[in-house]
Design a protein around this nucleic acid. Sequence first.
DNA 1: CCGGCCTGCTTGATTTCCCAAGCAATTGCC
DNA 2: GGCAATTGCTTGGGAAATCAAGCAGGCCGG
Lengths: 138, 138
Amino acid sequence: MGVPTPILSPSERGPLGQYLWSLRKAAQMTQREVEEASERKVSNAYLSQIETGAIPSPSPAILQELSKVYGARLPANAPVTCSYERMMELAGHLCPAREAAAQPTQRLTSFAGEQLTPEEEDELLKYLAFIRMRKGKK
Amino acid sequence: MGVPTPILSPSERGPLGQYLWSLRKAAQMTQREVEEASERKVSNAYLSQIETGAIPSPSPAILQELSKVYGARLPANAPVTCSYERMMELAGHLCPAREAAAQPTQRLTSFAGEQLTPEEEDELLKYLAFIRMRKGKK
DNA sequence: CCGGCCTGCTTGATTTCCCAAGCAATTGCC
DNA sequence: GGCAATTGCTTGGGAAATCAAGCAGGCCGG
């Protein structure tokens, strides 16, 4: 089985694409598996376009379906959490009434330290230094 | 000013159309006034189609705009109340109020004692998914 | 009666969503 | 090497959303 080269770095995908892509990777699913798990409601072709950013605003029905799939298939210790409202927000659909009071403090961090290998931690720290330098130079 | 004969009985309009029509009537606005009040984001033509049921599922952006207009213009003692979530539901866009229990609270392990901004955490999570995938296949 | 003015509604065209089908690259196995 | 399987991605087109422009008819003051 060949993993066919991601081709696109996370930063090249749109904001919604990045999020959905990381969700799918965390669930360890392929695009076609997601299509199957969603009962064919989301085609692998469309999912690809969403993840690459070609389609920035899929309909709420699509996002709802993806949310169900990932919410059910994500491992308990996944590095990301599946949130339909987050998807809606990233898609520009502002799902409402909570935008003000909803998440001030709840999302402090979702990193699980014991889950990181030393190599991963090292890479992440370097990357953190990188993005901080990039912003600092601004 | 001529009131031009409603032509369509409320029951002939779709569920969403009926609701929006009653909202507009309660606000005592014309379709063109709504177009103006929404800063031209919702054309009177489109509003007519929505109210008659020709378009059963307008985008969340449109509903959000209508919700803002009616929410601001409805008199305090109106016989109907303006609810964006109700609109979403009638449009078939199921905006889920129910599944707040899906995600358990996440353990907050500090990432090597770093203070992460939400943006930084976001980028790091995406990058983590990326390097894990890269390593997972090689 | 008659031209304006307002109403809700329709239509033609443009944009966007969405998918069936196919392509290109990669990996495992012989 | 060659072949089959699998993966992410692209393409062509049908369907739906959306609006600018226009239509038909009711209400006025002249």
